[in-house]
Amino acid sequence: MAQKTIAGIAVEVSSEGYLENPAQWTKEIALEIAGEIGIDLTDKHFEVLEFLRKEHAAGTQLTIRKVGKSGIVDIKGLYTLFPGGPLKYSAKIAGIPKPVSCV
């Protein structure tokens, strides 16, 4: 765990840069992490981020399939929004831990 200042806020992050405490997340933090990855956030992105945060808070194990069934975006659409690593990037920008799924 390490301290990092994102969008002017000191937050705890994992070794891979995921927020340790989702409550520290702000939209400004999202914009800055997305910028580092090279993604310009739109309203659609934020809809996905809100979904991820809500599901994470409810204790759901997140998978791409689950996001694809959210009604917000299908899996192909999720790839278009977060190219290269839809779940790992969207989770990082949403300020939740990296989804583990299986180990």
Binding site: Q61, T63, I64, R65, S101, C102, V103
Partner: peptide, 8 residues
Amino acid sequence: TELPYKCP
């Protein structure tokens, strides 16, 4: 194909 799967 997809996570999770049996015996990673």
